[in-house]
Design a protein around this nucleic acid. Sequence first.
DNA 1: GTCCAGGGAATCA
DNA 2: TGATTCCATGGA
Length: 289
Amino acid sequence: MKEQQYILKKPQTFDLRDIFECGQCFRWNEQEDGSYTGVWQENVVNVKKEGQDYIFSGICKNGNLEEKIQKYFDLDRNYEEIKQSLSKIDNYMKDSIQYGKGIRILNQDLWETIISFIISANNNIPRIKGIIERLSKTYGKKIEWNGKIYYTFPTPEELKDVTVKEYRELGLGFRDIRMYETTKMILEGKVNLQDLEKNQNTIEVRNKLLTLSGVGPKVADCILLFSDLKRLEVFPIDVWVRRVMNDLYIQNKDETKVNKKQIEALAQEKFGNLAGLAQQYLFYWRREA
DNA sequence: GTCCAGGGAATCA
DNA sequence: TGATTCCATGGA
């Protein structure tokens, strides 16, 4: 495969750290020069900031790099408008958006997002990244670029003979059986990913995702928001989001006792169909700042 | 040694 | 429906 290059000139909303460290993805790693390298589908790409421009270079299977980047980085969406709208809600939103102003929500592969967030359950980000890297290295396809070896995220077919024990040995812990069962369900067609991609009814898609082993409300919402399903109205509630929502708006003495339905209702009322974006600014702000 | 992590499933009321 | 408890693992 031939190396391709694409230069994104002076994007208004685009920051490498905000995009790759805000918790939505697990396969992008910072390089010594401050650029980031990542693998998605069968693409290996490095993004480097040059002045106010961003230089993408890498290899991609069938297709041109520019089109893939346009889609993956959600470049057709107007984030300036979204940020302006959310900033009007209150000063907390204004501050959190100011902190994460370069965030864009990636259109990640549905299958990879499902598995990644099943692994994320009761786990921490460095360890999630390690597990996903070992999964790819063990079962994915090898891609060489720029003198280094990279591995694609394994497809359901590439995992069809993997046992629960082998997942456990990769360090998945109690998530081994969930990963095994979900992979099996998809291979057997009990959940059809193409059908989910086509279905415009968010409730139906969410309910279907919830039938997968290891997919509960929070994981389902992360899949809906961070994959190419791209539902911006969902509001994934994890420990950090519960914490920040309680601190800012609810102020219960015991944050762990806050009712999830109360948080959901509040999010819907305040943020409406942009709740997912609001959630991401708040998550990143509370976790990093 | 203890606590915690982008929670889910099983169990019980 | 709603609340509790257990689930591996590695880093702080």
